[in-house]
Design a protein around this nucleic acid. Structure first.
Length: 313
DNA sequence: TTGTGTTTTACGACCTC
DNA sequence: GAGGTCGTAAAACACAA
């Protein structure tokens, strides 16, 4: 084995590179062994390191270069057979690979001059160097994709947790709205329940439920909405002291992110004049975007499913 | 030893500059 | 046309049974 610190005939710039990263002795020793003729029993490199003719010219000491053809030295017959069989793939040596790795770390693309120099330094064909870099880039890309995947996955999990929390909050608010509207209805009933006309009977049902029901059927609810100045004589429900029922529902539903409603007058029991007067004083129809339950549909259960789901679009 | 899964080397097809 | 990626074949290798 060559002594530490020897030049050994491989590129001095590359020696410096290796030495700077691996330490002075460990760095140069194995690599220089490549290039010290007759002193590299561990060199098992590619077919391109030395031509078959070169090997043929050399004595038996060159045979360990060819790891994949290791066999007993049984004489000339075996030797002939050995040199006539088709070339097989041979792995690069550990040291060659390390050398290429260091070079790859510096720059993962390969300019022609660098390729030639590397091939010369390692005793490989330039094409082998090029192929090694191609494969190395492919491996690097795969690793990078795995890292990106992990980052996306953790990000997804965080968002999913936020989403679940928001969903719970939404349900809690919905329940609160229902509770409050029921209480409100009860109060209204106690106040003047007996005077409720048939057309107001609609409101006897908890509005949250009624609206949710109609919304769930994908319909647009139409609810009489009267301004307080005229509603007071039409219905006891909308006196100036009591909270605006429709607005109360409206705002609560909005806060709860519930379905949309179009507020239009229910004019079935009114005369034409009354209808005209009423229509002039009515609030314009309030149209809210309708949000189906599907709008809050659960995302795919897992990050993998989500990724596949996104991919499908 | 053998079967099997993984890694590495090498190549062809196709694309880009 | 050179050099890139992508997909793949096949050799080399690791390892459990």
């Amino acid at each position: 084995m060559a002594a530490c610190g020897g030049g050994g005939g491989f590129n001095s710039n590359l020696s410096v590179l290796i030495q700077s990263q691996r330490g002075p002795c460990a760095a140069s020793q194995p690599l220089e062994a490549f290039f010290l003729s007759g002193t590299s029993p561990t060199f098992l490199g590619s077919r391109s390191v030395m031509s078959f003719a070169d090997v043929h010219q050399a004595n038996g000491s060159t045979r360990p270069f060819l790891r994949s053809y290791d066999h007993e030295d049984n004489g000339d017959d075996d030797l002939d057979e050995y040199f006539h069989q088709p070339e097989k793939k041979r792995r690069l040596t550990v040291d060659q690979v390390q050398f290429l790795e260091k070079s790859f770390e510096v720059e993962n693309k390969l300019e022609p001059e660098r390729k030639t120099q590397l091939a010369k330094d390692l005793g490989l064909q330039p094409r082998q160097v090029a192929i090694w870099f191609q494969n190395r880039r492919a491996r690097w890309k795969t690793k990078q994709l795995e890292k990106d995947y992990e980052v996306l996955e953790s990000s997804y999990n965080g968002l999913k947790a936020d989403y679940d929390n928001l969903l719970k909050e939404k349900e809690r608010l919905k329940a609160e709205v229902t509770l409050l509207t029921n209480e409100l209805l009860l109060k209204e009933k106690e106040k003047g329940g007996s005077e409720l006309s048939d057309k107001d009977a609609f409101f006897q049902e908890p509005p949250g439920k009624a609206m949710a029901d109609s919304a769930s059927e994908g319909e647009v609810s139409t609810v009489a909405c009267k301004q307080e100045d005229i509603s007071s004589d039409k219905s006891d429900m909308f006196d100036s002291e009591s909270p605006h029922y429709a607005d109360g529902v409206h705002s609560s539903l909005l806060e709860a992110g519930d379905s949309s409603y179009v507020f239009q007058p229910d004019q079935s029991d009114l005369s034409q004049d009354e209808e005209d007067n009423l229509s002039k004083s009515l609030l314009p129809p309030l149209v809210f975007p309708k949000l189906e339950d599907d709008d809050y549909s659960d995302p795919p259960a897992s990050f993998e499913d989500h990724a596949i789901w996104c991919w499908s679009y």
